[in-house]
Lab assay of single mutants.
Amino acid sequence: MQNSHSGVNQLGGVFVNGRPLPDSTRQKIVELAHSGARPCDISRILQVSNGCVSKILGRYYETGSIRPRAIGGSKPRVATPEVVSKIAQYKRECPSIFAWEIRDRLLSEGVCTNDNIPSVSSINRVLRNLASEKQQMGADGMYDKLRMLNGQTGSWGTRPGWYPGTSVPGQPTQDGCQQQEGGGENTNSISSNGEDSDEAQMRLQLKRKLQRNRTSFTQEQIEALEKEFERTHYPDVFARERLAAKIDLPEARIQVWFSNRRAKWRREEKLRNQRRQASNTPSHIPISSSFSTSVYQPIPQPTTPVSSFTSGSMLGRTDTALTNTYSALPPMPSFTMANNLPMQPPVPSQTSSYSCMLPTSPSVNGRSYDTYTPPHMQTHMNSQPMGTSGTTSTGLISPGVSVPVQVPGSEPDMSQYWPRLQ
Results as ranks from 00 to 15, higher is better:
Gln2Lys: 15
Asn3Trp: 08
Asn3Pro: 13
Asn3Ser: 12
Ser4Asn: 11
Ser4Asp: 10
Ser4Arg: 15
His5Met: 09
Ser6Leu: 15
Gly7Glu: 09
Gly7Cys: 15
Gly7Gln: 15
Val8Thr: 08
Asn9Pro: 05
Gln10Ile: 05
Gln10Lys: 15
Gln10Met: 08
Gln10Glu: 06
Leu11Glu: 06
Leu11Gly: 06
Gly12Ile: 01
Gly12Cys: 00
Gly12Pro: 01
Gly13Ser: 02
Gly13Glu: 01
Val14Ala: 11
Val14His: 15
Phe15Met: 02
Phe15Ala: 03
Val16Ser: 09
Val16Arg: 14
Asn17Leu: 15
Gly18Arg: 04
Gly18Asn: 00
Gly18Gln: 01
Gly18Phe: 00
Gly18Trp: 02
Arg19Pro: 01
Arg19Ser: 03
Arg19Trp: 05
Pro20Ser: 03
Pro20Asp: 00
Leu21Phe: 03
Pro22Leu: 04
Asp23Trp: 08
Asp23Phe: 09
Ser24Asn: 12
Ser24Val: 11
Ser24Trp: 08
Thr25Ile: 07
Thr25Tyr: 05
Thr25Phe: 04
Arg26Gly: 02
Arg26His: 00
Arg26Ser: 02
Gln27Leu: 14
Gln27Arg: 14
Lys28Glu: 08
Ile29Phe: 01
Ile29Asp: 01
Ile29Leu: 05
Glu31Tyr: 10
Glu31Lys: 07
Glu31Thr: 07
Leu32Asp: 00
Leu32Ala: 05
Ala33Ser: 11
His34Trp: 10
His34Gln: 10
His34Ala: 14
Ser35Phe: 14
Ser35Ala: 14
Gly36Ile: 00
Gly36Gln: 05
Gly36Arg: 07
Ala37Asp: 04
Arg38Lys: 06
Arg38Asn: 03
Pro39Ala: 11
Cys40Ala: 08
Cys40Ser: 11
Asp41Ile: 07
Asp41Met: 06
Ile42Thr: 02
Ser43Asp: 01
Arg44Pro: 01
Arg44Glu: 06
Leu46Val: 09
Gln47Glu: 04
Gln47Thr: 04
Val48Ile: 09
Val48Lys: 04
Ser49Arg: 01
Asn50Ala: 15
Gly51Cys: 00
Gly51Asp: 00
Gly51Lys: 04
Cys52Arg: 00
Val53Trp: 05
Ile56Tyr: 02
Leu57Val: 03
Gly58Thr: 15
Gly58Ala: 15
Gly58Glu: 02
Arg59Tyr: 00
Tyr60Val: 02
Tyr60His: 03
Tyr60Met: 00
Tyr60Phe: 15
Tyr60Asp: 00
Tyr60Thr: 03
Tyr61Trp: 07
Glu62Met: 11
Glu62Asn: 06
Glu62Lys: 14
Glu62Arg: 15
Thr63Asp: 01
Thr63Gln: 03
Gly64Tyr: 05
Gly64Cys: 04
Ser65Val: 04
Ser65Gln: 10
Ser65Phe: 06
Ser65Leu: 05
Ile66Lys: 00
Ile66Arg: 05
Arg67Leu: 08
Ala70Asn: 12
Gly72Ala: 01
Ser74His: 03
Ser74Asp: 01
Ser74Asn: 01
Ser74Thr: 03
Lys75Ile: 05
Pro76Phe: 03
Pro76Met: 02
Arg77Ala: 01
Arg77Gln: 03
Val78Pro: 03
Val78Gly: 00
Ala79Glu: 01
Ala79Arg: 04
Ala79Gly: 05
Ala79Lys: 01
Thr80Cys: 04
Glu82Arg: 13
Val83His: 04
Val83Tyr: 00
Val84Trp: 06
Ser85Asn: 13
Ser85Pro: 02
Lys86Val: 08
Lys86Asp: 00
Ile87Ala: 05
Ile87Asp: 00
Ala88Ile: 14
Ala88Gly: 06
Tyr90Ser: 08
Tyr90Gln: 07
Tyr90Glu: 07
Lys91Arg: 04
Lys91Ala: 05
Cys94Met: 12
Cys94Asp: 09
Cys94Trp: 10
Pro95Val: 14
Pro95Gln: 14
Ser96Val: 10
Ser96Phe: 08
Ile97His: 09
Ile97Asp: 08
Phe98Gln: 05
Phe98Ile: 07
Phe98Met: 04
Ala99His: 01
Ala99Leu: 01
Ala99Trp: 02
Ala99Asn: 05
Trp100Cys: 06
Trp100Ile: 06
Glu101Trp: 06
Ile102Glu: 04
Ile102Gly: 04
Ile102Leu: 11
Arg103Gly: 07
Arg103His: 07
Asp104Cys: 10
Asp104Asn: 13
Asp104His: 09
Ser108Trp: 10
Ser108Gln: 11
Glu109Arg: 13
Glu109Asn: 13
Glu109Gly: 12
Gly110Trp: 10
Val111Cys: 08
Thr113Asn: 10
Thr113Phe: 13
Thr113Ile: 12
Asn114Gly: 12
Asp115Gly: 14
Asn116Leu: 11
Ile117Tyr: 14
Pro118Thr: 04
Pro118His: 00
Ser119Leu: 02
Val120Ile: 08
Val120Phe: 04
Ile123Leu: 05
Ile123Phe: 01
Ile123Asn: 04
Ile123Glu: 05
Asn124Asp: 02
Asn124Cys: 06
Asn124Ser: 07
Asn124Tyr: 11
Arg125Pro: 00
Val126Leu: 06
Val126Lys: 06
Leu127Glu: 06
Leu127Asn: 14
Arg128Lys: 07
Arg128Gly: 04
Asn129Phe: 05
Leu130Trp: 11
Leu130Ser: 12
Leu130Cys: 08
Leu130Asn: 10
Ala131Ile: 10
Ser132Pro: 09
Ser132Glu: 07
Glu133Pro: 10
Glu133Gly: 10
Glu133Val: 09
Lys134Asp: 08
Lys134His: 04
Lys134Glu: 10
Gln135Phe: 12
Gln136Asn: 14
Gln136Arg: 13
Met137Ala: 14
Ala139Leu: 11
Ala139Met: 08
Asp140Tyr: 12
Asp140Ile: 12
Gly141Thr: 11
Gly141Ala: 10
Met142Asn: 08
Met142Lys: 11
Tyr143Gln: 12
Tyr143Phe: 13
Asp144Ile: 09
Asp144Thr: 10
Lys145Asp: 12
Lys145Met: 12
Lys145Arg: 10
Lys145Cys: 10
Leu146Gly: 15
Arg147Trp: 11
Arg147Ile: 14
Arg147Leu: 14
Arg147Lys: 11
Met148Ser: 10
Met148Arg: 14
Leu149Ile: 09
Leu149Pro: 15
Leu149Ser: 15
Asn150Val: 03
Asn150Lys: 13
